[in-house]
Design a protein around this nucleic acid. Structure first.
Lengths: 174, 174
DNA sequence: AACAAATTTCGGAAATTTCTGAAAGAACGA
DNA sequence: TCGTTCTTTCAGAAATTTCCGAAATTTGTT
């Protein structure tokens, strides 16, 4: 039978989960969350909290917190099976959807707060009537302008359908 | 006199440095590094290690390590003044250059390693001849394809001149 | 060479983040 | 209502990251 194949697959998935977790750290998201994401992206069926705990050898609290965090990001859905009170978790597998979701979320968490800071600093420095003051204001204004631009681009791109994005990219890369 | 204006400017800069530092944490880079970057981006002249230490109230070791890290990123240049043995540090202030530098560096640190992982996982799963094995391989392949695409886009965009990027963006946003 | 001034390194401390394990809180059925 | 099963929360422990301070090294001067 294909017990050998199953074993190989398990090894490959374990490798992916471990490495994806390590990458997650590099990206500023926590290892467990990245591991769970990798696990669910490659799971043939939705997984329960207990299955995730067992697979990754982590505590219930840890599994729970990170699963819910992934749900909050919009990368994972909760699935309920009838006749079963447990929640099961299923990851979005479409790469373009994953990308747009992450882009939207990172915009919200990284770009928007930066804009707030820059606007505030531009505002409080606008009136300073010295050369250094003007230079500071100008720097804030330029940063603000750029981040605003980035914000709009992020909205645009993450609103695109895959096909359209590809088409645009082809023009860019070709 | 403009002692009042100077005081206002100092407050505005301090605000920017503090907030930019806090944002840095969100972005997965360390607070001090982000603070130094903010400080240098808004400094009228290149600053010495001692000036940075004093301004941010941090140790010499910390200042040194993070200054050199910023230099390694390519966001800060070392400047030498004649008749002075000290090194001074000056940040790139052009927002487009900052952006392309960060884009290149993040590609190198985040995208390229992910590609390696995905290629390896695709390779070791290619031969697995079961439905789940094929599904796993296919998922790896799709992720790989997408990340490769992202990699090329990053190269393209970070190689652009500001004017050209704006032009392209106008088409996208307009 | 001897000294002074600056840079670099690094062991351990401090701060922050992440995780565990257990208790508390819901949801549901009997 | 009571018991069972699953979910959620959270205080303290563990792990990781960041930082300090001081010693070691390098660079340049006399």
């Amino acid at each position: 039978m294909n017990a050998a194949a199953d074993e190989q697959l398990k090894q490959a998935r374990d490798e992916f989960v471990a490495q994806w977790g390590a990458l997650g750290t590099q990206w500023g998201i926590n290892r467990t969350m990245a591991q769970i994401h990798a696990l669910l992206m490659t799971a043939p069926t939705p997984q329960s909290t207990d299955e995730v705990m067992e697979e990754l050898e982590i505590s219930r609290g840890n599994a729970h917190t990170n699963l819910k965090e992934l749900v909050a990001w919009g990368l994972v859905r909760i699935v309920v099976k009838k006749g079963d009170r447990r929640e099961y978790f299923e990851a979005e597998k479409d790469v373009w959807k994953i990308f747009t979701t992450v882009a939207r979320e990172r915009k919200r968490r990284e770009i928007d707060p930066a804009l707030d800071v820059l606007r505030k600093c531009a505002e409080i420095s606008e009136e300073i009537d010295t050369p250094d003051g003007k230079a500071f204001f100008e720097q804030m204004r330029q940063l603000e302008e750029f981040v605003e631009f980035a914000s709009k681009m992020a909205d645009r791109i993450s609103g695109m359908k895959h096909g359209f994005a590809l088409q645009m990219a082809a023009k860019l890369l070709g």
